[in-house]
Design a protein around this nucleic acid. Structure first.
Lengths: 139, 139
DNA sequence: ATCTTTGCAAAGCTTTTGCAAGCTT
DNA sequence: AAGCTTGCAAAAGCTTTGCAAAGAT
């Protein structure tokens, strides 16, 4: 398992076909060092039609292979999803995006929803700031 | 104080002018019962230029008068901001958006950031589900 | 053989921009 | 008077769609 995703992600799904373009997108996505925009992905794959890139991004999101990362400025980037449920740590300096999960945090979120008489279906949490490498050494 | 915002929000800010169009947008925003899209706001103000509506939305966001509410499907709505720091409870059924704040939650978020070696600048948390009115009675 | 997927180009949305005219202070 | 703001219309992003050809199982 080189990167965690490969063609197998699409094989075996009834009604889904593993095609050249999809394989190419999958490889590019798996190889990406940092989160990318749809535009960047499309540009890195000149041989794949633009529409196909967008369609595949959507497909991979539905399959939980790719996750959408909303930046602070409202733009959207994508990153290979490394876990089921998680949150993002977005570095405003270098663009790196880390993931984390915290059951306690989720519990607290659930509690707030309940308090408001809200039946929670899902939630999204993004943290923005500077990653370790980009943070000024504080002491 | 009828709704919490009025022309005063723009008066007194050096370099900012209180114009008819802005007054109109401000009133529409204050009167809105539910979160709205830029498109809806523009349509409700036929007398105000589209560009002005967008520019004013941005201005009001910068002034913390309006807050951006990202929906689950990626679309954006806006709502009068009722507090400084807060999170959203978005009802997928009726579209209502509530706000809440929880210092404990923020502390936990801060802790997760620190653990990851992250210097936190800001964060955004949106909860999606069904509000009390739209939730099926459970028991 | 059947049903899915692709690519292209056009169409769709949403938001921004340039600039002269019009307001506010 | 000085300079912020408006409106229009064009331009700019970004994403989706229609459809015939190509591909996968």
């Amino acid at each position: 398992m080189p990167t965690g995703v490969d063609a197998a992600a699409l094989t075996g799904r009834p009604g889904l076909r593993l095609t050249g373009p999809r394989r190419a997108v999958l490889e590019a996505v798996a190889a990406a060092a940092t989160p990318f925009t749809a535009e960047e992905l499309a540009q890195s794959l000149p041989g794949v039609g633009r529409a196909t890139v967008f369609r595949t991004i959507r497909l991979l999101q539905d399959l939980d292979i790719l996750c959408r990362v909303p930046l602070e400025d409202g733009s959207i980037r994508y990153q290979l999803s490394r876990g089921d449920h998680h949150h993002h740590l977005v570095c405003s300096q270098c663009g790196a995006v880390g993931e984390f999960d915290d059951p306690e945090l989720d519990r607290l979120i659930q509690r707030n929803a309940r308090r408001a008489g809200f039946t929670l279906a899902s939630h999204s949490l993004e943290l923005y700031g500077s990653c370790r490498a980009c943070s000024p050494g504080r002491g």
